[in-house]
């Protein structure tokens, strides 16, 4: 019988079992690394460094995980915080990429091979909408869970998801007609 996340967490807490923690990393690494790749706009090396930092912080702070949310939601929150801190360090202000998005939205400037790539379309969204769409539509989190991960009000999450979806549809429609 496969152990649940709760069983593995209990083993880490009681026995400091690093094999159990390894199993948790194996289970969630794809989702966390995927999320960070989207946030860093497919900078694979940076995304993996941040994912590693995410799991190290999770291990160090596992006692503060109260089980009120899913373990994956807790990990997403840590990952998002790691990303934000790194962005601040790099002086990349959150949401300043609107100009780039506008430029890339022009179907003529997009590589033909990427025109039908939904992930590429998602990357064109500004960070606040990209992160909300990614968490709610792609990772299947509820608006409430996403609000907790992103540390923003519930209403803002809903607005960002709505706007992000609309922009995605427009981008895909523009690519389809070009």
């Amino acid at each position: 019988m496969e152990l649940t996340d709760a069983d593995l967490i209990a083993r880490v807490l009681v026995d400091d079992d690093q094999h159990a923690f390894g199993e948790l990393v194996r289970r969630h690494q794809s989702a966390v690394r995927g999320m960070l790749r989207q946030l860093t706009r497919t900078d694979l090396a940076l995304a993996d460094d941040l994912a590693q930092e995410t799991f190290l912080r999770a291990y160090r702070n596992i006692r503060s995980f109260r089980g009120e949310a899913k373990f994956s939601t807790w990990l997403y929150r840590i990952a998002y915080n790691c990303f934000r801190e790194d962005a601040r360090k790099r002086k990349e202000l959150v949401g300043v990429d609107e100009g780039q998005w506008q430029k890339e939205l022009d179907p003529h400037t997009v590589d033909a091979g990427l025109r039908h790539d939904l992930m590429h379309a998602l990357n064109l969204l500004p960070l606040h909408e990209r992160s909300a769409v990614m968490l709610c539509c792609q990772q299947g989190l509820s608006h409430d869970e996403a609000a907790r991960v992103l540390d923003i009000p519930l209403g803002t999450v809903k607005t960002n998801v709505l706007r992000g979806r609309e922009k995605l549809k427009k981008t895909l429609a523009a690519w389809a007609t070009s």
Partner: peptide, 27 residues
């Protein structure tokens, strides 16, 4: 449909030694 496409478009990322690297950094 858009949500489904988004979920399907997200690739599964193979471990490729990632877990081992994390475990090696644990105290």
């Amino acid at each position: 449909a858009l949500d489904r496409q988004l979920r399907e478009a997200a690739p599964y990322i193979h471990d490729d030694g990632f877990t081992a690297r994390v475990l090696a950094c644990l105290p």
